[in-house]
Design a protein around this nucleic acid. Structure first.
Lengths: 344, 344
DNA sequence: GAGTAAAGTTGAAATGTTTCAGTGAACGTA
DNA sequence: TACGTTCACTGAAACATTTCAACTTTACTC
């Protein structure tokens, strides 16, 4: 009778000698069906190997059981930690999480968003290539619950969860200044990235308010925030004339910092004595670097978890108000800036 | 007329003055509809902001447009590289990739698989917690296309894609022997992991065939394959009496190697002179470590890509035969085993 | 033992697509 | 003019579920 087909509720109903509706009740409102019938239905299900068809469920019920996260860069562990936070929240809400990766390409991002719309996901979390791009407006217009992660977006057009990047820049450079450095490099880019601008701004603000010469805070732009670019920045740094060469570097993320660290050590520098390094994000590998990296910690999982909660609220709460959540970053001092003699 | 509802094909048809079937044809067989009509329908679609409902499509068409990868450990970049390879293949086949993470918990893995069955995904790629667990058999029995990634499974019950781990162990230890080391530690565990057993076996085989004393190949078991466990292994290593202390370590993955490296350097060892280190996997961060890590490279992306191709074949080719693809690992020698003086 | 309330079960309608047999129109050919 | 062929389009059925008003059974009360 089933001839190969995967069994449907109808088959289960027939096998258990009840109606369709009862089978459905067993799955969705078990409390309304008598224990005896329920047991009979459940046995039939497992005997037939019944597996509910989610498409049909979703079509009829009109609601999907998935959240999606479109991450910016799959090679940066930071985003996986954020994803992990989202996943935990999704697990609590009994939802599945769909993870996509735009790899910093706007076109790919758009393809993913389009698919997600077609799937009618409950909500979309995204770290966008460009927070002001048109396809994000599109989502808002459609009323799809959306939260921007680790970026902000003009106006109150949607929720966002981020970290105070200006403050992050301030505490990084303040820390270096406290360690006695008088010439500091800031490494990162491209400055079209909002965060680059803000972290740099924070760095400049504190530098100025400490009464230092702006000339002594040297911005070293990079083309991306990768390990390779960090290495290349290190080479440029080494190429500077000794009297202009900084004794410390604030890297705008940990990948850059790891690259810089590697290049520096390879070139025979002692870290932190010849060159102190501060990173940003505090990814797992920061602490695990050969010279453990001082870094400005973002609460990565927390970021994801909070974002998921916002999107769920937007999805279920009719008088949801958009919120721009901002976390406070925090300096984690390790050996890359604090030499053993001084630090302990 | 639409009162807030998201528009359906029916609405588009009405707006364009054609029938349902024609709208469907515009989407699925544009060549059978005249240019004039097609254009009219397309305009109606974009005016209404129509987005195809994937659940309905899938329900009727009986086929989903997604592949899924259940990864073992989201904190290990290795798996993200594999996922990236899968993603590329999926992109080529115009499919979406659903990424789940079991975090090495069998229960979580089962939940994910169950969900994926409900979604009727086209195929499942998985790096299982335990390749012989019952819920994998379940999948095979159901006829869901499945490929085991980076593991193997008894018999020809399904496709798998892996790397020759025994060979990997051999070349790692052979390399250390060539560098003149006579006492070598093998770090990794738990040995319930198939790979641990095989890599260790390879190490022992080559050690024996080089005529070395088995006593001089010291197995240092760990509880997991993480950075933290690598550090703790380093402490145990340091605690050994000098005459039994190895001058080289073969770590069964890069995370362990990075932990060991960090601990060693922190304790004042020179790498590779006091302690040479070989890792396994060759993740991105291996090359970026302060002492770039020698590692046994697995073709990570290629692994993922090949797995995706197998699963697609199983899904679409009626006379598909299960294949156990095995890649050959390859040693990438870097500074952690080759001191500058000798190596260049 | 009749009446009533509560509990349990039913079956048809609805969800948004795709598919496919069929209807017409337009055109060429004998 | 009649016939056949091609082309463009139509509309009902099917997919697997959920929902809900209506119905039946059971249990309780007086």
């Amino acid at each position: 009778m089933l001839n190969g087909r995967t069994p449907s509720v109808k088959d289960v109903a027939a096998a258990a000698g009840v109606s369709l509706g009862t089978v459905s009740n067993v799955m969705n409102r078990p409390e309304v069906v008598s224990a005896r019938t329920r047991e009979r239905v459940e046995r039939a299900m497992s005997e037939l190997g019944f597996v509910r068809n989610e498409s049909a469920r979703q079509l009829r019920a009109g609601t999907s059981r998935t959240l999606a996260y479109v991450m910016l860069d799959g090679t940066n562990p930071f985003f996986h930690d954020v994803a992990q936070g989202i996943e935990l929240a999704a697990e609590d809400a009994d939802l599945s999480l769909f993870i996509c990766n735009s790899n910093s390409r706007s076109a790919r991002e758009e393809v993913h968003l389009d698919r997600l719309l077609q799937q009618r996901v409950q909500g979309i979390l995204i770290t966008p290539v460009d927070p002001s791009s048109a396809h994000l407006d599109e989502l808002t217009r459609r009323g799809v619950p959306m939260v921007i992660v680790d970026r902000v977006r003009g106006a109150d057009s949607c929720c966002s969860v981020s970290v105070d990047d200006v403050l992050g820049g301030r505490i990084a450079v303040e820390h270096l200044a406290e360690q006695g450095h008088t010439r500091v490099a800031v490494v990162g880019g491209p400055d079209s990235l909002g965060q680059v601008g803000e972290r740099l701004q924070g760095a400049r603000e504190i530098w100025q308010s400490l009464g230092r010469d702006p000339e002594d805070l040297i911005y070293l732009p990079t083309e991306a925030m990768t390990v390779a670019e960090g290495r290349s920045a290190g080479e440029r740094l080494a190429g500077l004339p000794a009297r202009r060469r900084p004794t410390a570097a604030f890297c705008l993320n940990d990948l850059l910092a790891l690259g810089l660290l590697q290049q520096g050590i390879g070139a025979g520098l002692r870290v932190p004595d010849d060159l102190a390094i501060v990173g940003f994000d505090d990814i797992e590998f920061a602490a695990a670097a050969a010279v453990p990296l001082t870094s400005v910690r973002q609460p990565r999982q927390e970021l994801g978890r909070a974002a998921a909660q916002l999107v769920l609220d937007e999805a279920s709460n009719p008088d949801h108000r958009h919120e721009q959540l901002q976390f406070t970053p925090e300096l984690v001092a390790r050996a890359s800036t604090v030499s053993r003699a001084r630090g302990r």
